[in-house]
Design a binder for these strands. Sequence first.
RNA 1: UCCGCAGUAGCUCAAUGGUAGAGCAUUCGGCUGUUAACCGAAGGGUUGUAGGUUCGAGCCCUACCUGCGGAGCCA
Length: 449
Amino acid sequence: MVTESPSLKQAITPHVYINQLSAHVDQEVTLKGWLYNMRSSGKILFPQLRDGSGVVQCVVLKNAVQPELWESLKGLGQESALIIEGKVRADSRAPGGYEIDVTNAQVVQEVHDYPITPKEHGTEFLLDHRHIWLRSRRQHAILKIRHTVVRAVRDFLDNDGFTLCDAPIFTPAACEGTTTLFAADYFDGEKAYLTQSGQLYNEATAAAFGKVYCFGPTFRAEKSKTRRHLTEFWMVEPEMAYATLDDVLTLSERMLSYIAARVLADRAEELKVLERDPAKLEAIVPPFPRLHYDDAVKMLQEGRAKGLLEARFEWGGDFGAPDETFISGHFDKPVMVHHYPAEVKAFYMARDPDRSELALGVDVLAPEGYGEVIGGGERATSLEYLQQQIATHELPPEAFEWYLDLRRYGSVPHAGFGMGIERCTAWMCGIEHVREAIPFPRMMYRLRP
RNA sequence: UCCGCAGUAGCUCAAUGGUAGAGCAUUCGGCUGUUAACCGAAGGGUUGUAGGUUCGAGCCCUACCUGCGGAGCCA
């Protein structure tokens, strides 16, 4: 026999969400939320209520309510928990277009010392208070856009015939190198590593399902302290059997365009809060410029000759952040740089049959200095070549035996890419740093909260 | 790991080597349309830590700690 608790009863009392107010004009409603801010003017109070779906200004007139109600609301601090009853009224003076004329209210919890004020704060303070910083309007807008980016990715791939087939988080060995892996103690003295890519597993599932993707957290123990880096980030990785580099270019272009269109359509309010120029997102439509590595190098060398770049760039190297920014600065939409030197790319990349020093890989560089949002390409199909690559890169061969089976049993051309969700979200939002594009960022010097 | 910058009230920041300051937040008071409201008052400090120079250090010097920005590496 289950006894119904008072708190459960309270939780199921019907109430209206602030983003639904337009459907309740001139009706009495109950709102449940938290005090976002309060202004007052003698015998009139303007509490702003926040409920997760939006913020609405309420109006309390001293002469129109019970004296006890006036007293209970008068001195409330930011983030006091509140249930408010009142009538919805359209009013052009109100920030959201609607106001609530309060008739009754219940103070669920009174708060007086909320640390985050409406004034400015520093990065360290805000990150230390990330658990409550999430409530502020700007952070709320960013994470709503992240949600839309994730949904757009899933909808796009699902509607395109891809099957979600997630890769493991614990892995026995590196897929691209060992220096950037977080190690954990597994059983019986064995080491497990946190995944840095689902890539190799995707190749297995692609051979089983044709078109697949994995979508989950990824870990890199890189000692990077820049606005583009997290130690834990989310990555979506599609992989297609019987596909080539060209298919990857087309898929990248279609997916990024779809994401931008969805953000524009579904998150107009949030973009406004962030003061993000919609024109930047409207520009993200196919076709994206395609740039051969050779031509990118020429571009960098010309830039250096004109004094626009400090460092000299030699053919054969990988681009640094200033190089990427310089290249992407020539375009108002993402640029796809392809055919990198095989030397600087992962061991499993296929090589260009006409120029074996080149890999059939692509980096998609976002405009405005957001850097590489997508990296991918065509995978090598030859068993002998991969065995040789594993030896050259001094990788433990026993850890890759299962992977080599994929080249023994029905090896076909296949290709795919990985996209970083936080970089993509930060780009859509036009924000400075990827740390705001994930609820609880993990960085080199930040593990808390 | 390397290079650069910073650390003063709960927060954001001031303070020529010479008495530790303001705004916001908090508490109290005022105001019937406020838009990060406004006006008045009060409380609030081991100037990151340890040493050194000096008659005197928030300020100068050394080391360390913490954070920020960047490089390399990467999505």
